[in-house]
Design a protein around this nucleic acid. Sequence first.
DNA 1: CACAAATATTTTAAGTTTGAAATATCTGTC
DNA 2: GACAGATATTTCAAACTTAAAATATTTGTG
Lengths: 161, 161
Amino acid sequence: MNKSEAISGQAANETSDLSKARLRAWLQILKVSRKIEGELREKMRLEFGSTLPRFDVLAALYRERDGMRMSELSKSLMVSNGNVTGIVDRLVAEGLVVRMPVENDRRASIVKLTKAGEKDFAERALVHEGWVSDLFSDLSSGDADALIRILRNISHHNEAP
Amino acid sequence: MNKSEAISGQAANETSDLSKARLRAWLQILKVSRKIEGELREKMRLEFGSTLPRFDVLAALYRERDGMRMSELSKSLMVSNGNVTGIVDRLVAEGLVVRMPVENDRRASIVKLTKAGEKDFAERALVHEGWVSDLFSDLSSGDADALIRILRNISHHNEAP
DNA sequence: CACAAATATTTTAAGTTTGAAATATCTGTC
DNA sequence: GACAGATATTTCAAACTTAAAATATTTGTG
């Protein structure tokens, strides 16, 4: 019996209880996030005739009212560059955002909410927050704080790996 | 000032602190689940030359060794029917699963792991659990239990709505 | 200044995902 | 037994997503 077996009481190729607990935690995160995302996607489609990825881009731009570069957007949303290109294209077609040239750098462009984009998002964000609160109506204030604390730990450990 | 204003001290169209805490919790869930999914996707691609959706289907079939119907698969994975069709098509092409006719119901089919599928998945599942445990290495046993408890609450409230 | 390396973005191909329509089959009712 | 409605799955178009290749531009170095 090797050292880790002596400690854990398991054969070397078996996985620990802790490892299994973490796997269960991950599967539960995945389950909740799929369920909630599905609900929000449907509401978004039925109420706003729009999609979650577009909402996410609008939300990012609403926080940075001066606009963001494509690369800042994709980093902030944790999706690929090419992905953002398509979403922004559609938001431009809808008249909710504009692409503007960047002074002294003709490679880059700044994406910015239009007036219509600001107005639309402000309205949608309120409704969205209500949906989320309803979907999480069993989540007490204390549990919300605990959840946020635990998840932030995980986030930070996996920050920029 | 109306009753809810008197209680919350906020104008009627503002959202409550609890609502905001729930929104933050949801955004944190989303952030962690995107980050972890991205990491796992990359490892899956580099180490196994495969994808997460395929892994998910194999995992479901590994739990139900007698096989599952397409509709059972899509309900279990919480994805659409049409989605499962494509994933299973690719797994069939790889020789990891088979489609079998259902006695007395020619509309349906049972999807089942092949021997190769069982063997491949068993190996991959161990490695996968290791990856997850590493990504969650800051998650203590107690926090894992708390996380699971809180997320199950949310799941149950949104069960089949 | 030339030009290699770096950076910002778009394009592309393949895969995933959805929601709706289409197809095939089954079940209950008359 | 006919056949309307229900059920199981596939097909389809559109959108999303990634990773890699391509394009355009900037920056640093000799």
